[in-house]
Amino acid sequence: MPDTGTAATAAEPFDLKAHIRGVPDFPKPGILFYDICTLLRDGPAFRAAIRQLADLVRPHAPTALAGIESRGFVLAAPLALELGIGFILLRKPGKLPGATIGYNYALEYGTDRLEIQADAVKRGDRVVLLDDLLATGGTMAAGIHLLKEAGAEVPLAAAMIELGFLGGRARLDAPFAALVSYDS
């Protein structure tokens, strides 16, 4: 597909924040939800985001990317294609066929679980973990733990958005980077 020239290249920054919509009081009163759907449906903005993520991830020399269900899939799959490497799914329980490895983790009010297919990684694979957003860090920390338990090295965890005021990166057992950050 030819490049229309409407999205910025690595040498010319593209303002992703201009394409992310803030939705007040979602999913409950008092929460400001950062919606990437507006960015995803704008072709040039989506392409710019994937290119910026590629620039962020490429120096870590991953052999595969892993995405956290479900918005992490939306970013990790096209990014894996851009980088010419494989894509691994981290899913909720019972969603993956075959043998799986799982990890239970605590949430603010309860627990959750992520699973990966038992044969998805080989010992020593370099897997970068992606999600759309890092908030308090619980799900991303669980994903890093699960990938390491499966035998992968995790040279980087990344997201399109970081809610820096929630301190999620402090919970991660891997370096972290985001394309945009909101500090309040």
Rank of each mutant, 00 (worst) to 15 (best):
M1Q: 08
T4V: 01
G5Y: 08
T6N: 13
A7K: 05
T9K: 10
A11W: 09
D15S: 04
D15M: 02
H19W: 08
R21D: 01
G22A: 15
P24A: 13
P29S: 09
Y34P: 03
I36E: 00
R41D: 08
P44S: 06
Q52R: 15
L53H: 12
A61I: 02
L65D: 05
L65F: 07
G67M: 07
G72S: 02
G72A: 04
G72W: 01
G72E: 04
A76T: 00
P78R: 00
P78H: 00
G84V: 09
F87Y: 04
F87G: 01
L90W: 03
P93Q: 12
P93A: 14
P97C: 10
T100K: 07
Y103I: 14
N104S: 15
E108I: 07
Y109W: 10
G110R: 13
D112R: 11
R113I: 08
E115D: 05
Q117E: 09
D119K: 06
G124D: 12
V127E: 03
V127K: 06
V128C: 03
D131R: 01
D132R: 02
D132P: 01
T136A: 07
A141T: 09
A142G: 06
A142F: 03
I144H: 09
I144N: 06
V154D: 12
V154L: 14
P155I: 07
L156K: 11
A158P: 11
A159N: 03
M160Y: 02
E162Q: 13
L163A: 10
L163V: 11
L163W: 08
L166Q: 01
L166F: 00
R169W: 03
A174T: 03
A178F: 04
A178T: 05
S181V: 08
S181G: 13
D183E: 14
D183Q: 14
